[in-house]
Design a protein around this nucleic acid. Structure first.
Lengths: 199, 199
DNA sequence: TCAAACATACCAACTGGTCGGTATTTTTTC
DNA sequence: GAAAAAATACCGACCAGTTGGTATGTTTGA
């Protein structure tokens, strides 16, 4: 148990919270536990965060930034055809499912389930995260719909359906104890899009 | 605060747990709180349930039975055409979304998010509940696919996608503070089915 | 009259949070 | 550019209230 370098406590606390929240949810992840996992004392915790709720907000915001950077940096964004980008994004999300259940868990999705009626601040952060998650495909979908309009379908609504498939897939995966249903959810989403766009 | 009639404690505890778990999740719903909400003492709680986990199992099982009975009793099951039944089921689920967020929350879905790595017993009950939820449309989908086969699509997989749309929709709804995204998720599911079956 | 259905009182462990203190930077002042 | 001052980062003991759970009653219906 080597002591962590000075200045790293905040980041370590968020990382630890991410691991624990994905494993057991926000309420069940206690402050003491998070501190122990981060190798930091409670003094440090409440130096960086005014409350457990404040940590929750920071955790979800960090999650948003982390996943956002990851998707933005991915090479699939360079494909010329927008619909190719959409399908490549689905492939990417499918690849991400080759991990243990805690690691495929969405921090924003799990957390908002628990706190939507408890903490407006965390809920707002989660909403932002879910929206920014949908925003990754939004541009591609807009282009694709511009080239091939579909009656009654908006890019925003379709982008939200990506989140629906991802979040719903995670729940089924947790029930089954296996990521397979989450993969299947993406398969159906892809089939839906191919039918919509005639591919 | 009139005292509840004798023999009703167990049922009242499950009802209270259902309300509280839907509102704040399983971990955050404490035993004391559940007892207070049920108008019952802790002695009664631990008379009927060996532990909080045992209550969780009973809660999810009760949820399964409750929703199961509700869907089974619905008139839509009498429609002659299987695909009509499928679309009527979607309509029904859409109607159910005209309620406050806690009431549109799925007990099995929320709970499994928290406990999948904590309690095998509750997870198993939740899996059973999610499966039996999918089973409501399974029969109709089987018939519909028998009359109109679709390459690469199974009735089981399609039934699971219903759960994906429902569960994913709930998460987006909680983030948005409004049921609209959940309704939209069902709209997309319906459009998908119409494309698959050529309606 | 006896077991089941509750109530009451209690407990050890843990909960989020506070507080006084110390080590380390950074900023200011001359 | 060094000493002094002021933040900042972190520690760990402590606190009041709460947690799930227990042990021991009392009531009630068959």
């Amino acid at each position: 148990m080597s002591r962590a370098p000075r200045g790293a406590a905040r980041a370590r606390l968020i990382e630890a919270a991410r691991r624990l929240v994905r494993l057991k949810g926000f309420a069940a992840a206690t402050v003491d536990e998070i501190c122990a996992e981060a190798g930091v004392t409670k003094g440090a915790f409440f130096h960086h965060f005014a409350s457990k709720e404040a940590l929750g907000v920071a955790l979800v915001q960090d999650w948003s930034a982390m996943t956002g950077a990851m998707f933005a940096a991915h090479p699939y964004n360079a494909l010329p055809d927008p619909l190719d980008r959409v399908f490549a994004y689905i492939d990417l999300r499918r690849d991400l499912l080759d991990q243990p259940l805690p690691e495929i868990t969405c921090v924003a999705g799990t957390t908002v389930q628990e706190v939507y009626a408890q903490s407006a601040a965390i809920t707002a952060a989660a909403q932002e995260s879910l929206q920014s998650g949908a925003a990754h495909v939004l541009g591609h979908l807009r282009e694709a719909l511009a080239a091939h309009p579909v009656a009654g379908v908006t890019a925003e609504g379709l982008a939200r359906q990506f989140q629906v498939a991802v979040q719903g897939g995670i729940i089924l995966a947790k029930g089954a104890g296996d990521a397979a249903p989450a993969r299947e959810a993406l398969d159906h989403l892809e089939r839906y899009l191919r039918l919509l766009f005639g591919r």
